[in-house]
Structures are given as structure tokens and as C-alpha cells.
């Protein structure tokens, strides 16, 4: 069974904070009631056993439930197993115990209903932008004309028109990640998994890409599972934010982000935004081992 969400408001908080947290809890409970359990992780545990080194417990009973169409972010300290969990959802890694369900069915391996956007882009350097975008379709044996049509449409969607025949080394970091996003969208997955996709970009490019991602998300209407270590980014983008504990990772607390959409950049300087940021930071900071 799904474990109860950890209770909020343990540590000394101001009145305002407590009220806010109460609201968060209420929203959560509402959601749990009508939750379809689109993606559900139940008590997921995983230990890495690298040869010649001590084993590493990455996940220790991680619980999560993602709604259909939701934008959910996972934040946590470095090495808490956030990326590991994405790999489990993607089907590249199998957990030692617990299970991850999608549509109520356990995930057996990679499938075209999920696609990942990788932190280091993961573009094949010997392929042009167009052929990188076509990769997933090619592996699904989609005919060439159809692949090309999809790639052409996506190149426009991610704002890379005119760069189809460029090689990755000719692109900037932001452009590379646009290709990564287009490639993930090409197979028309239901779920986008994003593993710190903007971490390798400079701050301004990151801000721009976040806005772009929200625009594309509005158009493409995917469920997004987004891993980041940036609190700002998580709040700005998400419907809910899950804070993870340090390794072995568990869900420490879930925050609902009830900020209006569409979101503008100015939203980041509102008191509501900053209250949430402080709240999440206070939850997160005990887990950070400097």
C-alpha cells in the first residue's frame, strides 16, 4: 500500500508558514483521493554493487504518485537517487524491491510511452540535428518520410528551424538541449522524464529554456517528471514538488505549488513564490551533506 505522505510542520515555523503548510496538506489529501495513480512508485529500493567497491544504497523505500498531465519535480541533495529513480521509470534499471507502476502495470523495460531528456544531452555526435531527432522513430521502424515529417515539425516546435543539418558540436548548450527535447517528443510519449536537463546550461539560457519548456508542455500536454537540484526551477515549473532525503533516498515531503498558470518570469519575485522557496529550502537543508 501507498504510505502516508510525511507530515508537514514539525519544526519551528511562523504562523504564516503553518497556515501555508496546512493548505499544502489539504490539497495533497484532496489529490490523493482522486488520484488515478498514473505513475506510482511503491517502496522502491535499489542498491548499486559496483565491482571492487563498496555497495551504494541509492534508494531506500521511495514512494511517489504522479497524476496524468501533471508536472512534478523531484528535488534533493546530490547523490540522493533522484536520477536513479528516473532510470527505473525509464526501464533501464530494475529496483531491488518495491515496484513502479504505470497505468497500474509494472514497468518491464524501456517503452515508447516514456522518453528521457538527459542532463548531458546525450546527442549522437556523428548525427545531424535531424537524424538525432529521428533516432527513436528509427528504432521503432517508422518509415523515412514519416520520420522526416515529424522531425521537421519538432524542429520548429523547439525553435531550431534552419539547424536541421548541423552537427551537435556546432550547437550551443541550449540548442543541444532543444534537440534533446525534440528527440524525446518525437516518439510522442505520454511521459517525459527530465534528468536535470538544464543543469549544464548557464543561468540566462536556463531561464529561457524553462519558459520554453512551459510553452512546449502547454502545447504537447505530457506528464512530466522533472529532476532538479534547483528549488527555483522546481517551483516555477511544477504542479507539485517532492523533496527527497539524502541517500538512501526517500520522499521526505511533498509540496503543492498552487501558483496560477500560465506562469511569467515576474512570478519568481512574488512573496508566495519566496515563501515556498524558503519552505522547501528548510526541508531540504538538513539533508545536504556538504
Amino acid at each position: 500500500m501507498r504510505q502516508a505522505t510525511p507530515v508537514a510542520g514539525r519544526c519551528g515555523l511562523g504562523d504564516h508558514d503553518r497556515r501555508l503548510q496546512g493548505e499544502i496538506r489539504r490539497t495533497q489529501e484532496n489529490r490523493i483521493v482522486r488520484m488515478a495513480g498514473y505513475i506510482e512508485g511503491r517502496n522502491v529500493s535499489l542498491t548499486f554493487r559496483p565491482p571492487n567497491r563498496a555497495p551504494l544504497r541509492a534508494l531506500g523505500g521511495f514512494d511517489i504518485a504522479v497524476e496524468e498531465g501533471e508536472f512534478l519535480s523531484i528535488v534533493g541533495p546530490s547523490g540522493c537517487g533522484k536520477s536513479t529513480f528516473l532510470n527505473v521509470v525509464l526501464g533501464l534499471t530494475k529496483p531491488d524491491s518495491g515496484e513502479v507502476l504505470m497505468h497500474g502495470k509494472p514497468i518491464g523495460g524501456p517503452g515508447s510511452d516514456r522518453a528521457m531528456v538527459f542532463q548531458e544531452f546525450g546527442l549522437l555526435p556523428w548525427r545531424t540535428v535531424q537524424h538525432n531527432i529521428e533516432l527513436g522513430l528509427e528504432l521503432k521502424k517508422v518509415p523515412a518520410e514519416k520520420r522526416r515529417a515529424t522531425a521537421e515539425r519538432l524542429v520548429v516546435l523547439v525553435g531550431l528551424a534552419g539547424f536541421e543539418q548541423h552537427y551537435p558540436h556546432e550547437l550551443s548548450g541550449g540548442m543541444k538541449q532543444r534537440v534533446g527535447l525534440a528527440r524525446a517528443l518525437a516518439t510522442d510519449p505520454d511521459v517525459l522524464l527530465m534528468d536535470e536537463p538544464f543543469a549544464a546550461l548557464d543561468a540566462q539560457t536556463r531561464d529561457l529554456m524553462q519558459a520554453e519548456l512551459l510553452r512546449i508542455w502547454r502545447e504537447a500536454r505530457k506528464t512530466v517528471l522533472f529532476v532538479t537540484h534547483q528549488i527555483d526551477e522546481a517551483i516555477y515549473l511544477s504542479d507539485r514538488v517532492v523533496v527527497m532525503s539524502k541517500r538512501p533516498g526517500r520522499a521526505k515531503k511533498v509540496f503543492a505549488i498552487d501558483l496560477p498558470r500560465p506562469r511569467e518570469y515576474e512570478m519568481r519575485v512574488t512573496p508566495e513564490f519566496n515563501d515556498l522557496k524558503l519552505e522547501i529550502w528548510n526541508t531540504l537543508k538538513d539533508e545536504i551533506v556538504a
Binding site: L90, G91, G109, R114, F118, E120, L135, G136, L139
Partner: peptide, 10 residues
């Protein structure tokens, strides 16, 4: 990473 990328596409 690239091996994981193509594996993720099946």
C-alpha cells in the same frame, strides 16, 4: 550515456 540513450528508445 549514449548507450543508455539508445537503450531508452528500446
Amino acid at each position: 550515456l549514449l548507450i543508455n540513450v539508445v537503450r531508452s528508445f528500446g
